[in-house]
Amino acid sequence: MSNAVATPPVDAGAGRTVPAERTGRTTLSMNQAINAALHDALAENPRTLVLGEDVGRLGGVFRVTDGLQAKFGADRVFDTPLAESGILGMSAGLAMAGYHPIPEVQFDGFTYPAINQLVTQIARMNFRTRGALPMPITLRMPSFGGIQSPELHSESLEWLFAHVAGLKVVSPSSPHQAYHLLRHAAQRPDPVVYMEPKSRYWQKGRVDFDEPGNLEGAHVARAGRHLTLVAWGAMVSRCLQAAEAAAEDGLDVEVLDLRWLSPIDADALAASISKTRRAVVVHEAPKTAGLGAEVSQLITERCFGTLKAPVERVTGFDVPFPSGSLENEYIPNIDRILYGIQRVLEYRRG
């Protein structure tokens, strides 16, 4: 095998609309929806590659890349050594050479060894070269907790990625969004960190291939009048459950799924909280310097005059993400979200 990077194949679809292979509506689990999106991205663009630990022969530890190597060959869907810095370093080089890599970091906690490649190379290359070397890389990673995993297999790193200029960050909350947001991310010219909520991989949902809906910015997952829960990833479904519980008590709660964590859709935050005048941000990462602080400040800047109470945060604790069943004490549950709502309701000025 030569060390030289092969000239990438000509993108036959460049500048033309490739006819969508999939049409209509179907029911898929999230890992199947992501598998379909990867399949279609590979089929659409001959320069798209999928690489990572166990993504080839095994088909991924969550079956997300199942069958892709058999369909597209080991040149385009390939296993890498257990070296995340190598996976992202190779992706940077492939992007420089004209490819569109979709690397997988097998678990979010395994990103730490690759931070140098991600922050000092992938995030900056476009800026450094004044646009000469864009990095069309979609970095997938099973993210957040909820599966009682061993240590470092469950983290909540959106606070870190969102702070790195040059990276876009997105997290889907349903199979429909997982399919379309991944297709959307893979077509962008800039690096996107795509955070898959691993505890939601097996939940099924309707996927409409013809109607992706708006893929930019936030998404109102549930409309309500009295208070807005702001969440992303796996916390969206938990907030929807909390909203159902609140409805039993007579409170009409809106759930805003941020989806894009960089950039954050400040207009959608303002539109929702201008209406409800109360907000609680929910995330799994520790509270201190978490993304909840940024969301809270964006709300305060735009809605200070109409807010009925300070924005409340319901988050993980300021400790390392616990492994095994201890995570149940750490990840915000329905009751902790309801307590957060109660604190907002009880606030009185003066």
């Binding site: 530890v61 079956r63 599966i147 061993p150 459950q241 329905i334 009751d335």
Partner: peptide
Amino acid sequence: GIIGTVPKDEKPKRRV
């Protein structure tokens, strides 16, 4: 091949 436990999608209990 998965690592960890597949979560049960059941309606959570509330106390508050």
